[in-house]
Write a protein that binds this DNA or RNA. Structure first.
Lengths: 250, 250
DNA sequence: GCATTGTTTTGATTTACATCAAAAAACATG
DNA sequence: CATGTTTTTTGATGTAAATCAAAACAATGC
């Protein structure tokens, strides 16, 4: 349960310039020297098995991570065992900024699947930020969009009814896939119903009913984790509250 | 309604080293030269009248602000006019980090009362961050606690019932006052019921009922905006879900 | 293959909260 | 201070979603 995967991790050579995600997690406009600085700073690539943790709340281990493959969820949990999922991180997303406040992580990060992440230690990160202003800007932007994403979620939880919440979620996942060059009409959900329900602040049963309702209304077609969007405009209309798609993650 | 207060603002000399809030918003451990750099970087002090806006969503005007007196609320609003309040900022709190993502603010900031803020432009901020590593660290920490605060609010909205939400809010406001050297047992709410209800994701009527209920149970005594906490331990017990008081703001 | 376990869906019932409506209190204005 | 306006509280009713319960379905292991 409390296994930290890092210890059993394989080190492997990092080559950001070859990575298919470079468009997403690299600051644009780095020259060769700067790119080399970054590549040397990346400490290692880490494998995490499904259900293992990347980090725990209060862990001192402070790094920034970039998801290369798989999926990670972050969550807060209460003394009495309830949890609130804060975000899902998919390939190209960065996580770990939560540790900025106190040099300790404020949430748990668990793999939803076998997952691969790049690790950049805070020390190296700090040094890089000192050397490369462009890197600093990029990081600020990353943190900013994390903040923005959480704000959108607050709006979702605070103001929307359950059907609207699901429509908003599906709509932004679709946008996200489009941005990444994948299909915006057909995709797999990276998480179980249980986790999605928790993230959206409702009971699993309610979530299931909302999926069924959207399906009855011919807006989507679902089987297991595969979602096909049949009527995008009506979906967007339902998700109508949404201000603007958040830049990153979910 | 859409008045930007900045234009009518008075410039005034800034003297951070004299400011009673320096403990809160200054990075600790600045030497004289560094402190002077900071004071010169602070562009001006701004007065905002009650109900005026400090900034609007999508405003390019990008600065970091420190509240000196009064109170500010930030909120997101939807096409159909509903809003979600994201935070309340009281003296000593910093705001404006939301603009990091896209160089534009992602939310509105409105004064709940006549308010005084210090303004630090992003340009100066960037320059300072380059020059003073300690400043960078401090800012990272500030953003981190903003992130943490929003996470706690997500937990509140996603998992707690209404009574628990109010108890959590009162409990953390009390903690906050204690940290600032004010009474933790008796204080004024800086916002109207309407705003607090929205922030906590419930109807005004429900909030009012919860105040009444806590009063009936002899846990608190309220008259208008004045709250006295009569039984702190039972209040904390109700707010039991809460993980840890957030560092800053509400 | 079948049994076991976990996940998802569907149905019946309860409930916490929203909504509607109006009184009471606080605040503002001439 | 009397009057209108806004804010807050209280009461009655309706409803969206939680909970309880169980069936259907997928995944896992033997």
């Amino acid at each position: 349960m409390k296994t930290i995967a890092l210890h059993s991790a394989k080190k492997s050579a990092v080559a950001c310039h070859n990575c298919s995600l470079s468009e997403l997690c690299l600051p644009r406009g780095l020259n060769r020297d700067e790119l080399e600085l970054l590549e040397n700073a990346i400490n290692k690539t880490v494998k995490i098995k499904k259900k293992d943790y990347l980090f725990h709340r209060d862990d001192q281990q402070q790094s920034i991570y970039a998801v290369k493959a798989g999926a990670i969820k972050t969550s807060l949990s209460t003394p009495d065992g309830e949890e609130q999922i804060l975000g899902f991180y998919l390939p190209g997303d960065l996580l770990g900024f939560d540790a900025f406040a106190r040099d300790r992580h404020t949430c748990d990060a668990q793999a939803l699947d076998d997952t691969l992440v790049c690790e950049l230690s805070m020390d190296n990160f700090q040094e890089l930020c000192g050397k490369l202003p462009i890197m600093r800007g990029q990081m600020m932007r990353q943190i900013g969009s994390e903040l923005e994403r959480e704000q959108m979620l607050l709006l979702t939880l605070g103001q929307m009814r359950t059907e609207e919440r699901l429509a908003t979620f599906l709509s932004s996942l679709s946008e996200r896939n489009k941005d990444r060059g994948f299909s915006s009409n057909e995709f797999n959900l990276p998480m179980a119903r249980h986790d999605l329900a928790n993230y959206l602040g409702m009971a699993v049963e309610t979530l299931s009913r909302m999926f069924s309702r959207l399906q009855e209304e011919k807006i989507i077609a679902v089987q297991h984790r595969l979602v096909k969007i049949e009527d995008m405009s009506r979906l967007k209309q339902l998700a109508h509250h949404t201000c603007r798609p958040a830049g990153d993650a979910l």
